[in-house]
Each structure stands twice: as structure tokens, then as C-alpha cells.
Design a binder for these strands. Structure first.
Length: 259
DNA sequence: ATGACGGTGTGGCACCGA
């Protein structure tokens, strides 16, 4: 089976691209971030026609996340329980597979703007809350995948300019420590389970021809639990949609698991 | 660099993203 994540930066604009991508990449689960629309505007019918159930946690203008699944989902939870948040950033759901229930957690991590800012402080609080939530989810669901836009580079390999950007947003020691803390819960970065080409990224700025110059960051991840790790056979980043007209600034990350 | 590019809102620009 295949799981994927894609920050689509407005589903209103990108729905045709999502449908195109799913037609050629019929993954079992697709986690979307930055819907930028409210639940009532979510194109549930078009996605149903494409063969997908939807679990949606929308928000007007900003944020908004959804899980698309070929099979029905249950036990849908939105945001981080116990963490008061105005912003729609997390949705979790369970799917039933041949190997038993699998928990899918889809996150649109806080950007954080700049170290020292109020938004950065919010990012740190949010990451702390997510960590506690994931610990609980992992004990309830050994087969768990955390997918999303993490808005952190795990290490220097994940940035086009690690020295020039050292300790700037997405590159700070504090953010990376939070990333490591999540891994220490028993989660694994699928991408690094395999040999990968250097300078592989999942996001490129719209400005300064960043994509053409491959000035990017790898900030979109699929983390798998200890129980799932032995079944992962591939993790790839699909650059093709970044070449579309009116592309999202992110591209999909796809993981393949043995059934 | 107070920039760039792109999406959204009730707009004529400001805010946000990364």
C-alpha cells in the first residue's frame, strides 16, 4: 500500500492538480495540508468520484488539513486533544488494513516565522503538545504513520544552504531537537531508510527561480512507527507537480509499504 | 533587503507562508 503527503497551498486552486496526480498516483492514503477553505467548501463529491473518502478539518484562508483514503476511516480526531488551538493543523484517523488497524496522523506544523517571535514561541508550545499526543497515540496504535508539512529541516542535508541559513527558521537547534524528540518516541524518517540522491527537497520558494536552481528544503515527511518500519519498501519525493502551471510550492512525498 | 512569488480577503493593499 502507498501513503502520501502533499501541502497543496489552497485546495480551491489546486483541486484539478490533486485529481490529476491521484489519477496517475492512485495511493491508498493522501494527507493534504493548507486547504485554505472551510469544511463546507471542501470538494467531497469530486474526491468521492475519484475513489476517495475524506476526513476534513478545514479553515478559511489559513491552514486546514484532510485525509483522503480509498477505504473508510474511523475514530477521526481533529487537532491535538487538550491543546487549545484556533488553527486547524492536525487530523488523525484509523484505517483497517490486512495487517490490522493503522493510525494516520496528518499535521501541518507551525511555521514559526522567526526565532524569538511570538509565532516561534507558539511553534515550540505546539511541538511540545504534539509530542505528548504522539506518545499516547503510539501506545494506542502501534501501527502509526505521521505525515505532513513539518516546517523543520531534520538536519543539514535537508537544506540547500545549511551554513547560510544556520539558526534561521526551519534550521534552528530548538526546532531540530523537537524533531529528534518525535523520532525518539519510536518513529522513523522513511526517506532516510533508503539511499537517496543528495539535494533532494520537497519545497522551493516561488521567488528567485528557486525550483529551477534547486534551492529547496526537505520539510515534508512521512514518519513510520517501529511496527511499520520493517514493511517500508520505498520513499520517494515526486517533483513532477512542482513543474505544473500554478504549482504548489510543495511536492508530494510517497511511501510504499508491503501489504 | 522594508525585496522577490503566490494565495486570500472585501481588497485598491495587508498579511501570511517558508
Amino acid at each position: 500500500m502507498k501513503l502520501a503527503t502533499w501541502n497543496i497551498n489552497s485546495l480551491t486552486v489546486r483541486l484539478p492538480q490533486v485529481l490529476d496526480w491521484l489519477a496517475t498516483n492512485p495511493v491508498d492514503v493522501l494527507c493534504l495540508q493548507e486547504l485554505k477553505l472551510s469544511d463546507d467548501k471542501f470538494p467531497r463529491d469530486a474526491l468521492q468520484q475519484a475513489g476517495y473518502h475524506s476526513a476534513v478539518f478545514g479553515q478559511k484562508t489559513y491552514n486546514g488539513v484532510a485525509i483522503l483514503s480509498r477505504t473508510p476511516m474511523r475514530d477521526v480526531v481533529t487537532n491535538i486533544p487538550g491543546f487549545a488551538d484556533e488553527q486547524s493543523r492536525v487530523i488523525a484517523a484509523t484505517i483497517d488494513t490486512a495487517a490490522g488497524p493503522m493510525r494516520i496522523v496528518n499535521g501541518y506544523f507551525v511555521n514559526g516565522q522567526e526565532p524569538g517571535s511570538e509565532k516561534f514561541a507558539y511553534k515550540m508550545r505546539w511541538l511540545e503538545a504534539l509530542h505528548a499526543y504522539l506518545r499516547a497515540e503510539l501506545s494506542a496504535y502501534p501501527q502509526l504513520a505521521l505525515l505532513g508539512d513539518f516546517n523543520v529541516t531534520a538536519d543539514d542535508r535537508d537544506s540547500w544552504d545549511p551554513d547560510g541559513l544556520r539558526e534561521t527558521i526551519h534550521h534552528t537547534t530548538q526546532e531540530r531537537e523537537h524533531f529528534q524528540a518525535v523520532l525518539q518516541l519510536g518513529l522513523h524518517d522513511s526517506f532516510r531508510l533508503f539511499e537517496q540522491a543528495e539535494k533532494t527537497y520537497s519545497w522551493w520558494d516561488y521567488r528567485e527561480f528557486a525550483f529551477r536552481r534547486n534551492r529547496g528544503l526537505r520539510i515534508d515527511y512521512v514518519l513510520v512507527s517501529d511496527a511499520l518500519k520493517p514493511r517500508v519498501t520505498a520513499c520517494t519525493i515526486d517533483r513532477a507537480p512542482r513543474k505544473n502551471e500554478r504549482p504548489s510550492d510543495h511536492t508530494p512525498v510517497v511511501v510504499e509499504l508491503q501489504d
